[in-house]
Design a protein around this nucleic acid. Sequence first.
DNA 1: GAAGAATGATTCAACTTCTAAATCATTTTT
DNA 2: AAAAATGATTTAGAAGTTGAATCATTCTTC
Lengths: 163, 163
Amino acid sequence: MTTRGPAEAPVPMPKAFASRLGLMLVRVGDEMSQRGQQALEELGISGRDYTALAVIAADQPRSQLELARMMGKAPALCVALIDELETAGLAQRVRDPEDRRRSIVSLTSAGEQLLERADAIADEVAAAVLDGLSADELGAFRDLTRRAVTETTTEYQADVART
Amino acid sequence: MTTRGPAEAPVPMPKAFASRLGLMLVRVGDEMSQRGQQALEELGISGRDYTALAVIAADQPRSQLELARMMGKAPALCVALIDELETAGLAQRVRDPEDRRRSIVSLTSAGEQLLERADAIADEVAAAVLDGLSADELGAFRDLTRRAVTETTTEYQADVART
DNA sequence: GAAGAATGATTCAACTTCTAAATCATTTTT
DNA sequence: AAAAATGATTTAGAAGTTGAATCATTCTTC
């Protein structure tokens, strides 16, 4: 287990990140990721764990493969991921009686409770990252971001050697 | 060299990603990152290379260490990164005559030209990611994001073992 | 101005995260 | 019943990153 050590001298935001929208988006996402990761340590879970918990709860994937697709990750990764959640008592696998190849993943009540706390932490971190915006601006930003997110699709694409 | 292979069945955006602002920010950032990475392959550079080029051009760091801090990465990483850019003829190191410990990194004219093309690609990708927004909304979103980014600071924090 | 502390670049070993490919079980198709 | 497809899992390995150690140079301070 590690924690963030003494900070190096903080550097003002480079101009480059404020000049192009693409770089800004990546920057804000990374900032949220890193601070969120750090804040979630208090609950003993990673950012990836939190994402999995949130997707399992909200979207109820009908198999691990569907969960993997929703998360945009390789199916193999989800095996270890769910193993961890299961060991931690946060999630459980149940063989689908209608198709015994599938494992339906669901949260335990402990998992649901932890998710609530993780959601609260994520909200705090998001508020901190967007500290500079007024309440009105924050609302507008949230709506616009939701619109942008909603109209995208996730897909897991495999790397393939070029011929 | 690899490229993105045939897509798996694209899955609709999970509800979980549209429910909390923190998850949305990470999601949009990742989407931009991945699509940008893919689009930049055409220029033979990675997303990280593009970030470095943009920071070097816009912020003119006075040493590799300052560049590392601006990028939020470990100094060791920047050695290999700049080696690559130098080998590709995109950047060059010059020993600072006033402090010969420092290497001042700057773009070659080839680097500047490539950066212009990369900027254009990044703009295209950003527009595609935010496809669902109208022109007005896009403008508002850009301003709000810039405000959010500008008031943050970058810092590289080392991992430290907990005692 | 010499000795020691601080700063910057670099190398190296290790760690984390992730993926492709192969394997096995189960279901679907023919 | 045989063959193909689908889902979970294991294994080996790639890619990106970091901490610590090392060397060169500059700064501090006595």
